[in-house]
């Protein structure tokens, strides 16, 4: 019997035998490149962020952030030079007095040291107004641990006919607590069971979709707000200044493509998940990486109240 056990131990050891070794490959990037990121809208001064790629093995702690603060960043509008953007630290470059406009094309050129110069263009689509916004079935639920706020929202808009349109709907809450401190949090919203296929993705960035099936039509859909971290309930608690803001963005095609690839990337778990297929993040930056996207938004905000029985209503 002992021999059998010994044999079993040997076989198990053999089966499980494996070894890990460190490869000396350095995975040297072909070239370190500049990265440009910006999402421009008429509501904000022109702001971009400049950084550089860095090796997968490099330290990514706060001591080694790859922002570049001494690059030459030039802004052009419809081909005409506007200004150099001023650095404000942490890789940000702004023109505090310049707000981009709908229907114009903006180009940003960045050069820095021996890096290949990069450029990207973006334009801002027209705003698509919210036609109607409703909230339904406001309630608290203990579906998951805790006591969370949940409601169904309904958005209606008219899709402009004859053009490709891309949209994003996101939610944020803002409240001021009793100490006078302002809090802002992005909030998750998600499709309902029935209309999941309508959307190309949803995340903390909101719902993402295009008009490929709804060109020129009045579009109305429902979505679900779920208060995962119970910030929504705090917003109700501080109801004088607490509000839910919904941002209905009309976004450029490049921005949409980028957000879609980012959604796929985050859903797949990136390179931390060995079983998923690799994802290439979309970029519209020539000779570099990143995105310069344009958006135009209509917003609506609501204030909610909760009754003692767990049901709620709009204030």
């Amino acid at each position: 019997m002992k021999k059998i056990i010994l044999l079993g131990v040997i076989i198990t050891t053999i089966l499980l035998a494996g070894c890990v070794k460190i490869l000396n490959d350095e995975l040297k990037s072909k070239e370190t490149k500049l990265v440009l990121n910006a999402a421009i809208s008429p509501d904000s001064m022109y702001t971009v962020n400049v950084s550089h790629t860095f090796n997968i093995f490099e330290d990514e702690s706060e001591n080694n952030l790859p922002f570049i603060d001494s690059a030459a960043v030039q802004l052009f509008e419809d081909g005409s030079f506007v200004s150099n953007l001023q650095n404000t630290g942490a890789g940000y470059y702004i023109n505090p007095s310049f707000f981009p406009q709908t229907g114009k094309e903006y180009k940003v050129e960045v050069s820095y040291g021996s890096y290949p110069s990069i450029e990207s263009t973006a334009s801002i689509p027209k705003v698509v107004p919210i036609k109607n916004f409703d909230t339904l079935t406001i309630q608290t639920t203990d579906e998951y641990e805790g006591n969370h706020l949940q409601f169904v929202g309904n958005l209606t808009y008219d899709d402009p006919p004859g053009e490709a349109n891309f949209y994003q709907l996101s939610c944020r809450i803002i409240y001021v607590d009793f100490n006078g401190e302002t809090h802002e949090y992005e909030q998750y919203i998600r499709p309902t069971e029935k209309n999941q296929r309508f959307f190309d993705g949803y995340s903390i960035d909101g719902l993402l979709w295009s008009d490929k099936l709804t060109d020129g039509k009045e579009v109305s859909f429902e979505f679900i707000y779920f208060d995962s971290y119970e910030y929504g309930k705090k917003a109700i608690l501080y109801q004088e200044q607490g509000q839910f803001i919904f941002y209905f963005k009309s976004i450029s095609k490049a921005y949409y493509t980028y957000l879609k690839s980012m959604h796929v990337y985050s859903e797949s778990g990136g390179s931390d998940n060995p079983f998923s297929e690799p994802v290439v993040i979309y970029s519209n930056v020539k000779n570099g990486y990143g995105i310069m996207g344009g958006y135009n938004q209509d917003t609506t905000s609501i204030k909610l109240i909760l009754f003692s029985d767990g049901e709620g209503g709009v204030q």
Binding site: T32, N49, H52, I56, P66, Y92, T182, I204, Y289, I291
Partner: peptide
């Protein structure tokens, strides 16, 4: 295999890191 990485425009407002104006 990814050879390198970079910072993406990923958060809600379109700004990155602590330098953003949104606080």
């Amino acid at each position: 295999l990814p050879y390198d990485k970079y910072i993406a425009l990923g958060d809600y407002t379109g700004f990155i890191g602590s330098g953003g104006s949104h606080g």
